[in-house]
Simulated assay, not measured.
Amino acid sequence: MEAWVRNFLEEFGALGVGLLMLVENIFPPIPSEIVMPWSGYSVSQGDNSFIAVVAAGSIGSFAGAMFWYYLARWIGKDRLSRWIRGHGAWLTITPNDLDRVESWFERWGSVAVLVCRLVPGVRTLISVPAGFSTMSTLRFSLMTAIGVVIWTTLLAVIGWWLGDNYADLAGPLSWVSTLVIVGLVGWWLWRLLQQRKIRLQEANS
């Protein structure tokens, strides 16, 4: 993955940064923890402008977040809840879970959007409750913009600062992202088993 990202960015420069960050927010397996530090490293080598890569990365990330926000807003909570009733078992989600997420989001709102934009593995997911909640587009856009600029700038600065020693941190950053995703998958499997156990108990009672 890292070699492919490096080759892509070497060929397309800042435009490639924006494209990969857009895809990363729509299809998370392409981690920003590789894209942005490598972009910062390319700045240290004189291949790109720091402002250009941060701007491109932020715009791509912002566009990806807005995609999920508008999709959730278009679907709406009622339609999503009906779909979950019929197909939510494999996602280990129930309509009650959706209500709890909405209540939690209404409580934390802007703070949740801003903080979660800095957390690997959930940065994309936070756009969904924001979309079907009462959060305004302006408020969501502002918090998302602040979050993505902080995140992309931080990672780019790390890559730029490390320079030729970029490889020393590329691996650990990638592992952090991988561990978070593995943790989320493990949590999903545990929930799946718990729900299966409950259904078997109900069937036998």
Rank of each mutant, 00 (worst) to 15 (best):
S42A: 15
N7F: 00
T94Q: 13
H87L: 01
V17T: 14
M66E: 10
V5R: 06
V35S: 03
A145R: 01
L125Y: 13
P172L: 10
L114N: 05
G40R: 09
V157P: 01
L125Q: 12
F27H: 03
L114S: 10
L138Y: 03
L162P: 04
V113F: 03
V53P: 03
M143D: 00
P28E: 10
L118W: 04
A55H: 04
T153P: 08
S42F: 12
R79S: 13
L200K: 14
Y69P: 01
V113N: 01
S174E: 08
M135Q: 04
G131A: 08
W83Y: 13
D99A: 14
W160D: 10
W38S: 01
P129K: 07
W161M: 11
W74P: 00
S32E: 04
Q195H: 14
D99N: 13
F140I: 04
I93C: 12
S49F: 06
P95E: 09
L71I: 15
S141H: 03
Q201F: 00
N96G: 05
N48W: 07
G109T: 05
R117M: 09
L192M: 11
A203L: 13
V53I: 15
A72K: 01
L19H: 00
F50A: 13
K77I: 11
P28A: 08
R73N: 11
T137Y: 10
R107F: 03
A130K: 07
Y70A: 11
R100T: 07
I51Y: 11
G159Y: 07
T144L: 01
C116R: 04
S42M: 15
F132V: 03
E2A: 14
L20G: 10
P37S: 08
S58R: 05
A167S: 13
M21P: 07
